[in-house]
Structures are given as C-alpha cells and as structure tokens.
Nucleic acid binder design. Structure first.
Lengths: 228, 228
DNA sequence: CCCCCTGTGACAGGGCTGTGACAGTCGGCG
DNA sequence: CGCCGACTGTCACAGCCCTGTCACAGGGGG
C-alpha cells in the first residue's frame, strides 16, 4: 500500500490507549490519540484521519453518541471498541453508523486486520481499475482508456482484456481463454482467440505489429504485461 | 431504502443454514443458499447477489479458499462465519479478502446489523441531490429537473434513474437493473429494460438518438455518466 | 369509465464475430 | 547456416447477435 493509514484512536484508559497506539504504530499506521469524545471530535476536524478507532465507554459523551455526531458530517470509517460483548450493544453500535465493532481485549494484529479490511472496502468501492502502461481498465464503468481517451472495445474484446488483466504477467493458454471468455470448451484448432487478440491489439497497442502489452507466449497463448 | 438486499448464504450445516435463511428473510433480505463452496461459486455467477455470508468450515474447498477465489474476480462484500473464535483465523480470514468475520453462534439481528453495516458503506455517498450535466435529481423531493424545469417522469422511469444515479459511472447489467428497479429476476430475453431506458432517454436526453447521459454498454447494460 | 402507464413481442439495421485460407515468423535440427 | 515444420498473424466475408424502436394490449388509478 502506497499510503500509510492515518488513524485517530479515542480511548480514555491510559494503559489501553498507550498499548494500542504502540501496537498500531508497529503495524505501520500513523496514529493520533484522544482521551475524550470532545478532544476526538476536535482532532478529527483538525487532522482529517482516514479512520477512527473509538472506545464506547467514554467519560462525558459516550462512543455511540460520538459516532452519531461524526456521521452527521463525515463518512470516514469508524471501528467501535468495547469491553462489553453484548449483542444489543453490537446492534446499537452498528446502527449508530459504525463500520465494525470489536470487543476488548483485542490482539493488536486482529485490530490491524480489521482496520485494513475496512479501509480496503473503501478503496475497492472508490475505484476498481487497473493500469498497464498508458492503458487504464475501469472494471466498474466497463471502459478502457488509452492516454485518457476512451477506446471503443467490443463486448468480446472487453471480456478478453478483463480476463487477461485479472491475471497480469500470467500466461494463459488459448484453451483457458476460450473457457473464460467464450465459456465453451472448444478442443479443435481455431484461430478464434488469435483473431480476437489481433483486433484487441489493433486498438490497445501503440504499434500493433510489435506488441508490448499483450505478448504472445509461443506454444501456450498470451500474457498481459506492464511495459517498462 | 427501496432496494431489498440480496444475499447468498454458503453453509453446509442444514440446521444452521435453514435457521439463518429464515432469520435473514425475516429481517427483510432476499436469500439464496448453497451447501458447498462449488455450488456457492456457481450461484454467485448466476445470480449476482449483493453480499455473501460464507461459512469457513466447508466440505471440499474451505471458506478461506472460496473467499480468495471470489476476490480474484469479484468485489462484492463477504462476511465470514465460523464456529472458531481464534485470532489467527480472524487475521487469515480478513486477509483472504473478507469484509467482516463473525463468530457462531450468532444472533440473527447481530448478523443482520453487520450485513447492513457492510452494505451501508456503498450507499453512504448518495446524498439528497445529484447533478448530471443539466439534469438535477432531487432524491428527497423525488423530482428531476432539466435546465430548471420539472420533468414529469413516471414511477418506473424515476426508479430506474434513481438506481442509475446512485451508482454514477458504473455499468449496470440488465439483470442488475431488473433486480434493483423491478425486484424480480427475469432471466429470459425481454426488451423491458431497453424499453424503459428508451422512454427515459426521450425525456432526459437532449438528443435521444445520441445519448450523452444514459450510455449503453454493449454486451452489458447501461451506465449514467456526467457529460464533459 | 377512461386514460395513462407498463410490459411484451416483433422487427430492422448495424456492427460484431467466428471461420477458413493463406502468409509470415520462429525455433530446432541437421 | 539454411531448411523445414509448427505455430502465429492477418484478412475478408457471411451470418448472427444485440440493441433501438414501435405498436398494442392489459391493468390500475383517478
């Protein structure tokens, strides 16, 4: 991950706060902490973290309420942290807008795994695209652009490119491609895959006669590479 | 929200599967079930659910592996379900791409709350109004205006436009649209979606014959774009 | 009761796709 | 080093699939 996750930890117990801060820092996060809900809300506005780990039992306004207040204006991920393993609490917590609910005591790496899962979810939903050289494949919009301009791929060309792009750098046999893209097990010798690759190269490659993206693997099939 | 969540439950234990299916149905979800990983993967491709609840202990390929396979091609939310409350398992599970990890036995409403928390993230961005070119969609007033003047959309047209606008720039298949707008899975070949899109375009587009807002994605379906 | 909305099936046009033949290229072996 | 066989690139064309479009009938609400 290029970007170091930036967390805000709100927890009133000094010992737990310090322990978690240390543990999370070790896992490669940047962490700021607050001991009360008020401080936490202030820090949220000042520092704009990527995610909040929020204790439920806080002096003054409790975690649920902090959570609801945050949700009125912000939509960053919130993980609730609590000593009470009560089903009602879980439901209330999640309904006040939290993304996850973790019961103390918690291993640092478990919390870390949950943090990463929540952050990953956000990234997945924000954009699901892959880049190969000047080629950008947007899987949710189902578009392929080269140097910013939209390539008009036909359905089959698009499916072929999508399957290749899901296994970058991996050689796929004609057989595999037939199954993945055409969904039939054709055993005969047809130029079907080659013809489609050719059409795809004509749109995708800078110099279709000497391809740098869709390389042919002699005796096997094709492979999608990221050129130098 | 008008849309009923559509879940795939993969669980081999008949008693638990039936109980959860009943419980989740009562909470207002539409549920399909599978007893093995293989069946689950097949159903996933056929039915395209919104979310998967996946037991870890499965005969044949286990839940972790099912999870990883799904993640190779799909990005829908996955909630792992297990009888073992082992920290290692949680970490492994979340790292194989799951969004949440829930330990059995689980109250139906807790699972429901977690399901909603996971699904909520994808919908949080939809604010009260959205703008696409000269088109303004006001979700709270349920009106659509173009260049300031009110468009008289019929109920179905409005629902279709709302669903599209909640996922701007994202290609939606005809089948997805049927589920979202018409709430039934029609698998046959009907021109229903196309006809409604046509009627919608007639009101929404400047030049209905060359649409700039509701673009067709050949071989897939439609996508709502913000023009230039 | 009447009108508008909706779903359906038919139809046409245009573009996509699969096929087969042929040319070109690569690699191995003598 | 050159030849040969196998493998891949290329192309044109015919059929077909996909989508846009339309008219119509049924149904539901005012």
């Amino acid at each position: 991950m290029a970007h170091v996750p930036f967390l805000l930890l709100i927890e009133d117990d000094d010992a737990i706060r310090t322990a978690l801060e240390l543990s999370l820092s070790r896992q490669g996060h940047r962490v700021v902490t607050a001991a009360t809900g008020e401080d936490g809300l202030k820090l949220l506005r000042e520092q704009r973290p990527d995610l909040i780990v929020l204790d439920v039992m806080l002096p003054g306004i409790d975690g649920f309420e902090v959570c609801r207040r945050i949700r009125r204006t912000d939509q960053l991920p919130i993980i609730l942290l609590t000593a009470r393993n009560d089903d009602i609490d879980v439901v209330v917590g999640l309904e006040s807008g939290a993304d996850d609910y973790v019961v103390k005591p918690v291993q640092g790496r478990v919390l870390d795994a949950r943090i990463r899962a929540v952050l990953r979810r956000g990234e997945r939903e924000s954009s699901d695209s892959a880049t190969f050289g000047s080629l950008v494949i947007d899987r949710s919009a189902m578009t392929v652009t080269k140097n910013g301009e939209d390539l008009q791929l036909t359905p089959t060309e698009l499916r072929l490119l999508l399957e290749l792009s899901r296994r970058p750098g991996q050689a796929l046999s004609r057989q595999q491609l037939l199954r993945l893209v055409w969904e039939h097990d054709y055993l005969g010798d047809s130029r079907l895959v080659d013809a489609c690759v050719q059409r795809l190269r004509a749109k995708v490659e800078d110099v279709p006669s000497s391809p740098t993206l869709i390389r042919t693997v002699r005796g096997v099939g094709y492979r999608l590479d990221t050129p130098q």
